[in-house]
Design a protein around this nucleic acid. Structure first.
Length: 607
RNA sequence: GCCGGAAUAGCUCAGCCAGGUAGAGCAACUGAUUCGUAAUCAGUAGGUCCGCGGUUCGACUCCGCGUUCCGGCACCA
């Protein structure tokens, strides 16, 4: 069911898959009359979906686990049985498993299977491909743990019934289970919502609205530093910055096609009525913009463009608003108002590959600076067979094939490994998504490069070619730093809140051993601040131990301790976050090293 | 949006199951302390127990509705 299942024969797969059956048996025992969905192994365990007669909550887990262990103890043997299609259907009807029955019919229809396999262990019977362990005694009783209960649509389709999914961890032995559970708990500590509160980075206030974060001073520093970096990288690559308003007339989004595809996830229209000079009232409809491209397109279209002007690169950290589904909104990761690291590159078809190369190398540079390397590339393509395709994609088969071919060739030429993802394209064209594996165990799209063949012609964008005739440019959309919101959420978790000096809200905190040294401490702070270092003086009335504890809790990267010795020698004692060993050095040397670490955006701070 | 769970001081949480109108630690504030490496001491203040309704002599506690958050699913230009 996913890529990880290729090792279908290995023992752990069989253990997890068999445990799913054991869970189902225990659930049916506890909730007789419930019906089954799917119950596959997954990366760290397994789940099983049910329609339950009575809800199950996490409070039921101890009892459920106990029932499972009892089943394991019994040593139920797994028996496989292959039934003809007709017999299989009859049996599924007898079992009163309508969802399994539906799936069986589809397997037979689509794949033309001549027979279907069933597995029985003890009283439990399930239509299933296998393989399984020999007996439930082969499964370690202390290497699984129920994790959570969740809702999930049957077959992943929101038009279907909602089932109850029970997730569990399962491993080959207790040590692996314990390791996975404690890794999970550790990851919870890095949750950006938790760290965002603890480090005073942002807040979300009900009176302002769901999904509309307010950036606090500390968080704003991170935003500003990221934006500064983005602007530098873009400047070097020949981008020109523009600034455009947060709203536009609804008609514009009608012409681009955004309304047709995304109306439901836009804030509703604002109607205004104005009186014109001749006394007529003129009604106009405005919308909060859900993306910046139409505004940039209008800048492109504001004058006649020659092929000599291309590629033309327009960049803006643009604020956009999207009516994200209530259940999707979460912290900074998914919001309704966001600031996007946007740019649109207008180019000819011949230039597409070069533009992509340039953008990809910019991504490499950005990731290198931030020390990000745990990611994969996904080629997000059109899916011509998608039953909902008419709503999801522009209808232009030839243009889809053409643009996808260009990008596929490019990826191959660059020797980039990618995951092919039909059905993940934007409505206006294919894209390359950078999928990060986050420390909290999720996969998420952080950056993206998109090839848009559809919107420029709709807005009548043209350039004059060498042949003297009008042509339509392509538009490449790119956002290496995603939105400030999502990217910061990602970085908070990546760094666990302990940002490198150049990104840290407070870069240096100076602590005195006692208040009698505060003149020197203040001098240091003033000197650093004069050089735009975010330095501050720690509270005077606390003990040294307390000040160190506070600075460490706030994850300030550099604590400077000054006392009698430092004042006498004009030195500072540097205590780096997470580094046991301190170093005492001349103030000048510290300033020079710090200045260099900040200027080069160093992750480590070499002394 | 859907399924399930939760909401008590700025934060972390106890009290609620068995109704009798709130408690701790940290943070904050005030004072004392001036200290060499992860919590100095004392005091003060801080709560429409998410909101609205219902049951009850009486509701933080029970019930209903709503809001927000969390875990997932769906969605993600």
């Amino acid at each position: 069911m996913n890529a990880r299942d290729s090792s279908a024969d290995d023992a752990l797969y069989r253990t997890r898959h068999s445990l799913a059956h054991v869970l189902a048996q225990a659930v049916l025992d506890m909730r007789p009359g419930s019906t089954l969905g799917f119950g596959p192994p997954i990366a760290d365990g397994f789940y099983y979906d049910f329609i339950l007669t009575e809800p199950i909550t996490e409070d039921d887990f101890p009892e459920l686990e106990q029932r499972m262990r009892r089943i394991l103890k019994k040593g139920q043997r797994f028996y496989r049985e292959d039934l003809s299609v007709a017999d299989a259907f009859t049996r599924l009807d007898e079992m009163q498993e309508p969802y399994k029955r539906e799936y069986a019919a589809e397997l037979v229809d689509k794949n033309g299977l001549p027979s279907l396999s069933f597995y029985r262990n003890g009283p439990f019977l399930d239509m299933c491909e296998g393989p399984h362990v020999d007996t439930t005694r082969d499964i370690p009783r202390d290497a699984f743990k129920l994790r959570s209960v969740a809702g999930a649509y049957w077959r992943g389709d929101a038009d279907n019934v909602m089932m109850t999914r029970i997730y569990a961890w399962a491993f080959a032995d207790k040590a692996s289970l314990d390791a996975a559970v404690s890794a999970f708990e550790l990851a919870q500590e890095r949750d950006h919502k938790k760290l965002g509160r603890e480090l005073d980075l942002f807040l979300i206030d009900d009176d302002v609205g769901r999904g509309l974060p307010l950036w606090l001073p500390n968080g704003t520093v991170i935003r500003d530093e990221l934006e500064k970096l983005a602007v530098e990288l873009e400047f070097k690559a020949g981008y020109e910055r523009v600034a455009t308003p947060h709203i536009a007339k609804a008609d514009l989004y009608d012409r681009t096609g955004h309304l047709a595809h995304y109306k439901d996830s836009m804030y509703p229209p604002m109607e205004v009525i104005e009186e014109s000079a001749d006394g007529e009232s003129v009604r106009e409809t405005y919308m909060l913009r859900p993306m910046n491209c139409p505004h940039h397109h209008k800048i492109y279209a504001s004058r006649l463009r020659s092929y000599r002007d291309l590629p033309l690169r327009l960049a803006e950290y643009g604020d956009v608003y999207r009516w994200e589904a209530s259940g999707a909104v979460s912290g900074l990761a998914r919001v309704r108002g966001m600031s996007m690291n946007d740019a649109h590159i207008y180019c000819t078809e011949d230039q597409i590959k070069d533009v992509f190369r340039e953008v990809i190398s910019q991504y490499d540079e950005a990731y290198r600076i931030l020390g990000l390397n745990d990611y994969g590339i996904r080629l997000s393509r059109w899916d011509p067979d998608d039953p909902k395709g008419r709503e999801k994609y522009v209808d232009a088969a030839e243009a889809w094939r053409r643009s996808e071919r260009i990008i596929t060739e490019l990826l191959d030429e660059m020797g980039i490994d990618y995951e092919d993802a039909p059905g993940e394209a934007a409505f206006y064209g294919p894209k390359i998504d950078v999928q990060f594996h986050t420390v909290t165990g999720r996969d998420e799209t952080v950056s993206t490069v998109q090839l848009d063949f559809a919107v420029p012609p709709r807005l009548g964008l043209t350039y004059i070619g060498p042949d003297g005739a009008e042509h339509t440019p392509y538009c490449v959309h790119r956002a290496p730093f995603s939105t400030h919101e999502r990217f910061t959420a990602f970085l908070i978790e990546h760094f666990g809140g302990a940002f490198p000096t150049w990104l840290a809200p407070v870069q240096v905190q100076v602590l005195t051993v006692s208040a009698q040294f505060s003149a020197y401490a203040r001098e240091i702070v003033d000197r650093l601040r004069a050089n735009f270092v975010r330095a501050e003086l720690a509270s005077e009335s606390d003990t040294v131990a307390k000040k160190i504890r506070d600075g460490t809790t706030r994850k300030i990267p550099n604590l400077l301790i000054v006392g009698e010795r430092e004042v006498a020698d004009r030195t500072v004692t540097l205590r780096r976050y997470g580094v046991k060993q301190q170093a005492t050095m001349p103030l000048d040397a510290f300033e020079a090293a710090l200045g260099k670490a900040i200027a080069t955006r160093s992750l480590t701070f070499e002394l």
